[in-house]
Amino acid sequence: MKGWLHQQAGAIVRALRHLGRNPLGSLLTAIVIGIALALPAGGLLLLENANRVVGDVGEKPEISIFMNMPPDAAQSAEVERRLTDLPSLSSFRYVPREEALEQLAAGGLQDVVSDLATNPLPDAFVVTPAGNDPAAFDELAEQFRAWPGVHTVQLDSAWVERIHALIDLGRQAFTLLAAILAAALVVVTFNTIRLQLMTQRTEIEVSRLLGATDNFIRRPYLWTGMLQGLLGGLVAWLLVSAMINTLREPVANLATSYGASFALGQPSLAEVATLLGVAVALGFAGAALSVDRHLREAA
């Protein structure tokens, strides 16, 4: 174990020497990797934030049942009885037309309400279904429409579902983009390591003649790839954090203008660890492909 650690430490020193020989090139490569990682990482993070907002709103989908006009107490009572008997509901609330008018007035339309000669609003029921299966909500809405005395049924979660669908689409698009950019990063690392192998050809040949194993030769290049990936991951993290900081205030202002309170969240520790882990893994993959190809050709 001590020998293994000693070998790895030696390889890391040699990898740092590789990076240090061309600091500007290493920095530029890290920035390229960072930008490429920041694009999908930032996009996915924004989508997660959007999902959080929609999730908060969409956790309690509601179905509004509006009764026929003129109001019929017997029909309202029948609907209430049927709702009581339904096992697939979390809760429901009867909103008499008088209460609906009062809510309308309290919502800033006092002037309009006072001008009305009669109350134009119907009796209504606000139903909260159990579960979270959108198909089941649709079935319930259809069932309510067939009941006597029901004029209109409105499924309030429909817009949430559409946004969820959009977010899913965005997530798939960013995942696809991430896969493409990951392949590009492997190619970038492959090429960087290939150039290093070419410039250090003499050192490799001499080392082989002195008894270096393939693993001894491979090790510092793998560490170079991983360190370059790590640097790229750190650059990506900085870029994503800067983006979130820049957008935080405008987004908060926008939320406030809608009477809501929302702040963009920075990536969590687990998300940062994942980002860095993916960056290191991509660097390792590019370096491994490059150095293995070189060793195969040399053999």
């Binding site: 020998g3 080392s207 002195l210 008894g211 270096a212």
Partner: peptide
Amino acid sequence: LLPLTITGHP
């Protein structure tokens, strides 16, 4: 030093 680095000498 290189051959000794290769063989992992302390």
